[in-house]
């Protein structure tokens, strides 16, 4: 079997012309992964499309309704548009805040010398601690008489209702989410910053570039692959926001912090409408796919891959 592996056959994943493949061996290696992929990803994906065409209760017989679920979602359900708007607002604000802050913090930590690694770990802690515990402690802190408002009261400021004021609740969610998620991007961008050769910055300095110029003209372009990766992953993640509204505000007050996934979850598991929930899931999938495709189509223009 082993002799079937031609030496130097795949260098960096490129296939030299005329080399024989190793179909069977490859199939054996791929079998577990691809079988699981088919059963647990492809099959549910197709199944959810099928379910979305049915009126499908949790228990009881499903009934085929064609595109009714989609028609209802787009024309007969004002909550869907509210929820979609909330999710878009969250996604844009969260992504922009997260990336700008992560870029600033990782650049700062990069210059902090021996203290950098410690603070990088500190910022990463909320990423690895359970989201549920994080959300609960934030809820505790943001209640009307919580620690935040008590602290503000020391300065004579009458703190607002962070979680039950419809103007503020979404902002609180975004703040909590940025705190929760920023560490991941700090790590990725930090690794990107470490990958930039000091020689480049030195050359720019000799040519008379100031600190800001070096940052915008050298560091940022060199960092663009990491930034691109962070942007794509952060946007995808932000569309899936669920735990924060579920635990902090339950989507309220009113529908002001309800998001697609929370609405989907409720339709599926509280309102017993698995068909409608699947239609919502597909709407989410299509939106995320479109945005990701849009980003990748702009990749060549925005991202600098030449070293």
């Amino acid at each position: 079997m082993m002799t079937a592996l031609p030496t130097l056959a795949v260098k960096n994943g490129r296939k030299p012309a005329g080399t024989p493949g190793h179909g069977r061996l490859a199939a054996a290696y791929l079998a577990p992964g691809m079988l699981g992929f088919l059963v647990f990803i492809v099959l549910p994906l197709v199944a959810s499309l099928v379910i979305s065409l049915f009126d499908w209760p949790l228990f009881g017989a499903p009934e085929f309704v064609g595109l009714d679920n989609y028609a209802r979602m787009l024309t007969g359900d004002p909550v869907f548009w509210t929820v979609l708007g909330n999710t878009l607002f969250f996604a844009v604000s969260y992504t922009v805040l997260n990336l700008v802050l992560a870029l600033a913090v990782s650049t700062w930590l990069h210059h902090l010398g021996s203290w950098g690694p410690f603070f990088r770990v500190l910022f990463f802690i909320p990423v690895v601690t359970p989201m549920v515990a994080n959300a609960l402690v934030w809820r505790l802190m943001l209640t009307d008489d919580g620690v935040v408002n008590s602290f503000l009261a020391n300065f004579g400021i009458d703190g607002p209702s962070w979680l039950s004021d419809s103007q503020l609740a979404m902002g609180s969610l975004i703040a909590m989410s940025v705190w929760q998620g920023i560490g991941y991007n700090i790590i990725v961008l930090g690794a990107g910053l470490n990958g930039i050769s000091p020689n480049l910055l030195e050359a720019a300095r000799i040519d008379g570039a100031g600190a800001w110029q070096r940052f915008f003209r050298v560091v940022l372009p060199m960092l663009s692959p990491s930034l691109f990766f962070c942007t794509v992953m952060t946007i995808i993640g932000s569309f899936k926001v669920f735990t924060q509204p579920y635990l902090l505000t339950l989507g309220g007050p009113g529908e002001s912090t309800n998001t697609i996934v929370l609405y989907l979850y409720r339709n599926g598991f509280s309102f017993d409408k698995l068909g409608y929930a699947s239609a919502l899931a597909w709407a989410l999938f299509v939106i995320v796919m479109l945005i990701t495709a849009l980003q990748f189509s702009q990749q060549k223009r925005l991202v600098n891959y030449d070293n």
Binding site: L43, S48, Y265, S278, A281, L284
Partner: peptide, 8 residues
């Protein structure tokens, strides 16, 4: 999104 797969 994992949520698309959760129901099936």
């Amino acid at each position: 999104p994992q949520e698309v797969l959760v129901i099936p």
